[in-house]
């Protein structure tokens, strides 16, 4: 028997590509956000609304991750913004290599910011660094207000939380305590910015746009 100390990173191959992405984005001083949520929280609707409302002010390119189909990329392209669809064909998260290849296919010179819409999943995508500038998490009110405590990893790692579909709170269509979500998310992550929004009506979106604009300016420094 012989014991050998190894000490190698298990996700080393992913981390190497994440590092390439970090270098590329730093060199270009470009903001790249990794957007993570459960399926159906409204990530694509938020992006479509954001791109349309900020037309002429902020040029956003999107990398879409889904198991199957290019439905999301088509929705983004309908706004005239460039979108690259990645189909993971079963994998529950995007890898840094897939993002590296997608970045190479986006017209980066014509963009102010890149958003990676990760595969809908609150667990696995949080474990894979893509070399992004920062993570943002979306939670829709219909999913329940216990998600920050049940899935703490992603809330602890994100720069911002968008609480979507707040129109459902009126008329008590769903039971959801927004104050509880804010308190639980801030307990995990003191500096997380929280934006209650309704991407469908546009309610609350301006605060998110202001923050996004500030993030783009920060990346350019």
């Amino acid at each position: 028997m012989e014991k050998v100390n190894v000490g190698s990173r298990i996700l080393g191959a992913n981390e190497q590509y994440a590092m390439k992405n970090i270098e590329l984005l730093a060199q270009r001083k470009q903001l790249c956000l990794n957007m993570i949520s459960s399926p159906g929280s409204g990530k694509t609707t938020i992006l479509v609304r954001t791109i349309s409302d900020l037309k002429g002010q902020l040029r956003i390119g999107v990398i879409e991750g889904d198991l199957q189909t290019d439905i999301d990329a088509q929705r983004i392209r309908a706004t005239q913004a460039p979108a690259i669809q990645i189909n993971t064909e079963g994998a529950c998260h995007l890898s840094a290599r897939q993002v590296y290849e997608a970045l190479g296919r986006l017209p980066l010179d014509a963009l102010d910011a890149i958003v990676i819409e990760n595969v809908g999943n609150l667990v696995c995508p949080a474990a894979f660094e893509l070399g992004e500038t920062g993570k943002i998490v979306v939670l829709s009110v219909a999913e329940g207000d216990d998600k920050p405590v049940k899935y703490p990893g992603i809330f602890a790692k994100s720069r911002a939380l968008l609480v979507n579909k707040i129109d459902l709170l009126r008329g008590a269509l769903v039971e959801f305590d927004l104050d509880r979500v804010k308190a639980d998310a801030r307990r995990l992550n003191k500096s997380i910015e929280i934006f209650p929004v309704c991407a469908k009506s546009g309610e609350g979106m301006q605060n998110w746009y202001d923050w996004l604009g500030a993030q783009v300016r920060q990346s350019r420094l």
């Binding site: 012989e2 014991k3 100390n5 190894v6």
Partner: peptide, 21 residues
């Protein structure tokens, strides 16, 4: 206190292998 900063999480590492020679 409730004001804290999470320190970096430990990475996934293969620490040791035992070989039969």
């Amino acid at each position: 206190g409730t004001d804290f900063e999470l320190l970096p999480d430990a990475p996934l590492v293969l620490d040791e292998i035992e070989f039969e020679k």
